[in-house]
Simulated scan of single mutants.
Amino acid sequence: MNRRTTSLSAAVALATALALTGCSSSGDTPELKVSGAYMPQPVMDMAGGFLTITNAGGTADKLTSVTSPLSDDVTMHETKNQKMQQVKSFDIPANGELNLERGGNHIMFMALKQKPRQGDKVSIELHFEKSDPITVEVPVEAPNHNPQKH
């Protein structure tokens, strides 16, 4: 009986150690942060969205979709050879960043339910392959707004 108790204790200790190892490795999960978000004031019934997602974690993730009360048709586009095409996701590298900016990869809001004005904020929700969704309040800027990277 004593031997059985010792084996059971060892099994419980091993299971606990394995469970803790799986949960506490901070380098094994994406650590996402959003910055620099903005939307130029739309001049038609569509708008672009721009932001940077920084991943301080040791595991890559993917931006898989964007939703917003502003539009039921929010898509992601990449720009290659000066041509825009829709994509299903954007990679967010481990210890790296995803830049969505004018002239490059970006978010498109089609068939706007209303036209936000400069000074307004538009709520969006970013959805990821591994991470929990992130809600961002995106400021609406002047139609020609284009921040320069430093």
Rank of each mutant, 00 (worst) to 15 (best):
M1N: 03
M1Q: 02
M1W: 01
N2W: 01
R4S: 14
T5Y: 04
T6F: 02
S7V: 01
L8T: 04
L8Q: 11
A10F: 08
A11E: 08
V12C: 15
L14C: 04
A15F: 01
T16A: 15
A17E: 03
A17D: 02
L18N: 11
L20F: 12
T21G: 10
T21V: 06
G22H: 03
G22N: 04
S26D: 09
G27T: 06
G27H: 08
L32N: 02
K33F: 04
S35D: 02
G36W: 00
A37K: 00
M39K: 06
P40G: 05
Q41H: 06
V43G: 12
M46T: 06
M46L: 13
A47D: 09
A47Q: 05
G48W: 00
G48P: 00
G48V: 00
G48F: 00
F50P: 11
F50I: 07
L51N: 12
T54I: 14
N55K: 03
A56F: 11
G57E: 15
G57W: 11
G57C: 14
T59Y: 14
A60R: 09
D61T: 04
L63G: 13
T64W: 14
T64P: 11
V66H: 06
T67P: 09
S68T: 12
S68W: 10
S68D: 08
S71R: 08
D72Q: 06
D73S: 03
D73G: 00
D73I: 01
V74R: 13
T75Q: 12
E78H: 07
E78Q: 11
E78W: 07
N81R: 12
N81T: 12
Q82K: 12
M84I: 10
M84W: 11
Q85F: 13
Q86H: 09
V87I: 05
I92C: 14
A94I: 05
G96S: 02
L98N: 03
N99V: 14
N99P: 13
N99R: 07
N99C: 06
N99W: 10
E101S: 13
G103Y: 12
N105D: 15
I107M: 14
I107F: 11
M108G: 01
M110Q: 12
K113R: 09
K113N: 09
K113L: 02
K115T: 10
Q118A: 11
Q118G: 03
Q118T: 11
D120P: 02
K121P: 12
V122R: 10
S123W: 01
S123F: 01
I124P: 07
E125T: 15
L126E: 00
E129G: 11
K130G: 02
S131P: 01
V136Q: 09
V136W: 02
V136C: 07
E137P: 02
V138H: 05
V138I: 13
E141G: 04
H145W: 11
K149P: 15
K149S: 15
K149N: 14
